[in-house]
Write a protein that binds this DNA or RNA. Structure first.
Length: 582
DNA sequence: GCCGTTTTCGGCCCGACTGTTTTCAGTCG
């Protein structure tokens, strides 16, 4: 059987892996970067990859020359690449995983491999514990301890739970196929995916159909399935190639769908409470449905009917964590106007080729419009973010000319002039106030000097919020799920100040960030702090991140009225200004 | 490996921090 055709994302992933392998090999850093920028370019391209390959027009993309074009074409047409296979064969696969650890780059990884024959994270942990690493040149006792810390973080989260945003595209692809399977009536994800938890373990899917067999077959033979782990009369388990993800599918008669969906959506804690409530009313609630004391079964068509039976408001999946939603639903004070994706009018927080984004302003504008947004806030990095191509003050004016031009070229849509200005170590902003005052949206973010202590970082943020030019704090905790802990600061104090001064908090939808996270959103909402749900887009495909920001906001009980980018452009800008003028 | 061009090769983004050094290499953002 021929290998499945590779899409943009798959080719980009291979180019990135080649870049890592070349680094291990000690190749020229600029050559290495060429592979990375090539991957960037593929992910940012608006054209169809297959068409460009067929027409031999790959080199028209900036950053892709003849060399890369040939390799990409080989990958797309044959699914293989000689160079890639050679490189993979030259190093133990565990070295790539070691590279993901903080503090470890190619040089150190190769030293560990060459000197100690440490070729995996497990080997490395052992070597550190035995004190063998400190003997190496360039390493010491401190680095040994830091590596162990890094491994602990890595293992706590890696290999077990995966980021929602990394998993959801795979899940949605499978759902599409299952919807079209023979006899299928209803299909849904369940479990943590449906609750939109920030990370998920295994994926649970549910379908209803008169006959399970043909539906189970559709999953077992779906593209991307690496191995069928088990298949019975009503269940099928598979492992996907992508991300080593396990997917379980259950198929049952449609009359059982709602109660089963409810059961497998969880959370466990939410269920335990509901079962108790059911018992009080004389019902037994289980995986198999709702039964009266005499054993007769109630017909539950929809989940909402179940909540109604228990005398409470319908509880959306995102809120089912037993964190107060049951009491609220019983008392009828669950928010009816919880934020939805449809409420969002504008995309907030984006980068273009003016700083470290991959698409031009016009491409970003057209893509955002196609997704139904009315506006997009253009917020490039500021000058302190040198590594991200941050804009100097004087470059802004030239960018505004292009924004004006795009705004004329794309009718019915508006790019808003903004900046993601660095919050410097002192809490000062990276541009003069006279420049910031001329912008429509100012997001302030911490990008450098994460290593400050709680006291210093709290002061830094509070001090930044004292500047009336600042509208929004971007990714307020700086965490990267699976990669970096949040920097330490006193969240309550910062939220109190935000409420007092009219500073808005970002709910960043980038799958690695989700920052603020749901529990912080809830704290913010309780204090009356306003929010934006953002995309933090560096390329057009990132505009979809708004869905993750919305999910996070919902999990934090945010209502439509508390999220400013549910407003049209002019009221949005006016509200930002008005909040700071209080 | 890409790009621009001086069409054949040199420049490509860099500053700060950390832990290791004793003057700096490696990593990170």
């Amino acid at each position: 059987m021929s290998p499945p055709p590779l899409d943009k994302a798959a080719v980009a992933r291979i180019l990135r892996e080649i870049s890592l392998l070349l680094q291990l090999k000690g190749e020229n850093a600029f050559k290495v970067r060429a592979y990375d920028t090539g991957a960037d370019r593929l992910l940012g391209m608006t054209q169809e990859l297959g068409a460009l390959v067929r027409e031999g027009r790959l080199t028209e993309l900036p950053g892709i020359g003849q060399g890369l074009a040939d390799k990409i074409a080989e990958l797309v047409t044959t699914g293989k690449l000689g160079l890639y296979e050679e490189l993979k064969a030259a190093f133990p696969p565990g070295l790539l995983e070691m590279l993901q650890l903080p503090e470890l780059g190619p040089k150190k990884v190769m030293a560990l491999w060459n000197e100690l024959k440490v070729g995996s994270v497990a080997d490395l942990e052992k070597a550190c514990r035995e004190g063998r690493v400190r003997a190496l040149k360039g390493f010491g006792a401190r680095s040994e301890a830091k590596i162990l810390e890094g491994i602990a973080l890595h293992q706590r989260v890696h290999g077990k739970r995966k980021r929602l945003g990394d998993v959801l595209p795979t899940v949605e692809g499978l759902l599409e196929r299952l919807k079209a399977a023979p006899g299928v009536v209803r299909v849904s994800p369940a479990g943590s995916v449906r609750r939109r938890a920030e990370t998920v373990g295994d994926v649970d899917l549910l379908a209803s159909a008169p006959e399970a067999g043909p539906v189970l077959d559709v999953l077992a033979t779906a593209p991307g399935v690496a191995v069928v782990l088990g298949k019975g009369e009503s269940k099928c388990s598979v492992r996907m190639t992508e991300g080593d993800l396990q997917v379980d599918l259950r198929v049952l008669p449609d009359e059982d769908f709602a109660t089963a969906l409810h059961h497998f959506t969880g959370s466990k804690a939410h269920h335990v409470r509901l079962r108790g409530l059911g018992q009080d009313k004389g019902y037994k609630i289980s995986e198999w449905g709702v039964h009266r004391a005499d054993g007769t079964k109630l017909l539950i068509r929809e989940e909402a009917d179940l909540y109604k039976l228990l005398g409470m408001q319908d509880i959306p999946p995102e809120l089912r964590e037993d964190s107060g939603e049951i009491e609220a639903a019983l008392e009828g004070r669950l928010p009816e106007d919880l934020l939805t994706l449809e409420d969002v009018r504008g995309a907030v927080h984006s980068h273009s080729t003016w700083s470290d984004g991959r698409n031009s302003l016009e491409e970003m504008a057209r893509a955002a419009q196609a997704l139904g947004f009315q506006y997009l806030t253009v917020t490039e990095h500021s000058q302190a973010a040198v590594y991200a191509g941050g804009l100097k003050e004087e470059e802004l004016e030239r960018q505004w000319e292009e924004i004006d031009r795009v705004n004329e070229a794309v009718p019915g849509f508006r790019l808003l002039k903004g900046i993601e200005v660095d919050i410097l170590e002192t809490g000062a902003l990276d541009y003069r106030d006279s420049v910031l005052e001329r912008l429509e949206v100012v997001i302030g973010s911490v990008h450098i000097r994460h290593g400050m202590d709680e006291e210093q970082m709290t002061r830094r943020l509070l001090s930044a919020m004292d500047n009336p030019c600042l509208n929004i704090i971007g990714h307020p905790t700086g965490r990267l799920i699976h990669e970096r802990e949040p920097y330490p600061f006193r969240m309550e104090e910062v939220l109190d100040r935000a409420a007092e001064r009219g500073v808005v908090m970002e709910v960043n939808g980038s799958p690695a960030r989700l920052d603020l996270k749901a529990e912080h959103v809830r704290q913010a909402v309780q204090r009356g702090v306003k929010l934006v749900v953002s995309v933090d887009a560096h390329k057009i495909s990132d505009l979809h991140h708004v869905a993750f920001a919305v999910a996070t906001a919902r999990k934090g009980w945010a209502r439509k009225g508390e999220v400013l980018n549910t407003l049209p452009a002019d009221p949005f800008i006016a509200k930002l200004k008005a909040l700071r003028a209080r």
